[in-house]
Simulated scan of single mutants.
Amino acid sequence: MTTKKQKVLVLLGPTAVGKTRLSLELAREYNAEIISGDSMQVYRGMDIGTAKIRPEEMNGIPHHLIDIHDPEEPYSVAEFQEQGGRLIEEISRRGKLPFIVGGTGLYIESLCYGFRFSPAVADEAFRQAQDAFAEEHGAEALHARLAAVDPESAARLHPNDRRRIIRALEIHHQTKVTLSSTQAAQKRESPYELCLLGLTMDRQILYRRIEDRIDQMLHEGLIAEVEGLLRRGCSRGLVSMQGLGYKEIATYLEGEMTLEDAVTLLKRDTRRFAKRQLSWFRHMKEIEWIGDFQEAHYHQNLLLIREIISRKLNL
């Protein structure tokens, strides 16, 4: 006897592409509950820099995996996979549609396809040695170490993403197998009946939206938010404080660069991050892409999205 797979709707795309507005409309139409697929929105008190949806904007639609960790506590993809899988079960039992929305490719893919994670255990001595190397020689030098043994993972990871770079090095150090080859060997069949929707748009338009969003974040109080986190003792070495917006503004607040330079760096790094997001999503072959997701074509795209959902999930 075959067990019927649970239907799961997924909406992904780069930062600032417009996922939030669409997700609310689709959630209302398809009686869905939203599971956030964002590695930064799990942290309490980190609202402006993560573009976190406000409670009053949720329109009564349940949102999960938002504000579940203090910024002092690191959050992992394995935790997300376990919690997200449990939520899919619970939401389905309530007769509602589980709806994953976000831009963290590894998190979303691990949940959709039930990835098994490397058996490599935490080696604190190895991690501390890599951390010390990065402090002495810089982020680029640590990134180069990864590029030498696992160029595919290095291409996906930003040089400032120290935690994930060290984890990839740790996996190779212990198992002599690269993180990228481990991920490539994962079973590609999903335990769910999936409909994956991907949003994108002209690259230059997306970049302008990113820069406008950062300007809006600054207007809404991003500097004060980061200042408050530093004041409560959140050091720049925390996983949470490595997030875009937080590390750049913290650098300014601690006197290491001007505000103008910090904002320029933030805009540049966010554009690069969006490019890496799209590169990650491109290898997920089952995504149905909405390639020109702009306001002028919103209702036309909505009709296309409804057709895709009907075809993939029979809803």
Rank of each mutant, 00 (worst) to 15 (best):
T3Q: 15
Q6C: 09
V8F: 02
L9P: 01
G13I: 08
T15F: 12
V17I: 10
G18T: 09
K19E: 03
T20K: 11
R28W: 03
N31E: 06
N31R: 11
N31Q: 09
G37H: 04
D38T: 03
S39P: 03
S39A: 12
Y43I: 05
G49T: 03
I53N: 05
R54F: 07
E56F: 12
M58A: 14
N59G: 07
N59W: 11
N59I: 10
H64E: 01
H69A: 13
P71N: 05
P71Y: 02
Y75A: 08
V77L: 09
Q83Y: 05
L87W: 02
E90S: 05
I108R: 01
I108V: 08
S110T: 07
R116Q: 09
F117S: 01
A120N: 02
D123Y: 05
F126P: 05
F126A: 01
Q128T: 07
A129K: 11
A129N: 15
Q130L: 12
F133C: 08
F133H: 03
F133Y: 15
E135Y: 13
H137R: 15
H137T: 12
A139C: 13
A141V: 09
H143C: 07
L146N: 01
A154S: 08
A155P: 00
H158D: 14
R167E: 07
A168P: 10
E170W: 00
I171K: 04
I171C: 00
S180G: 06
Q183F: 13
R188C: 12
R188D: 13
Y192T: 00
L196M: 14
L196Q: 04
R208Q: 14
R208K: 14
R209N: 11
I214D: 02
L218I: 12
H219G: 03
E220V: 13
A224C: 11
V226R: 02
G233T: 08
R236D: 03
R236C: 11
M241H: 04
E248Y: 05
I249R: 00
V263F: 07
L265Y: 09
D269I: 11
R271F: 07
A274Y: 04
L278S: 06
S279V: 15
W289I: 09
W289P: 00
F293C: 04
F293D: 01
E295I: 15
H297E: 14
H297L: 12
N301F: 06
L304A: 13
I305H: 07
S310T: 12
S310L: 13
R311H: 13
L315K: 10
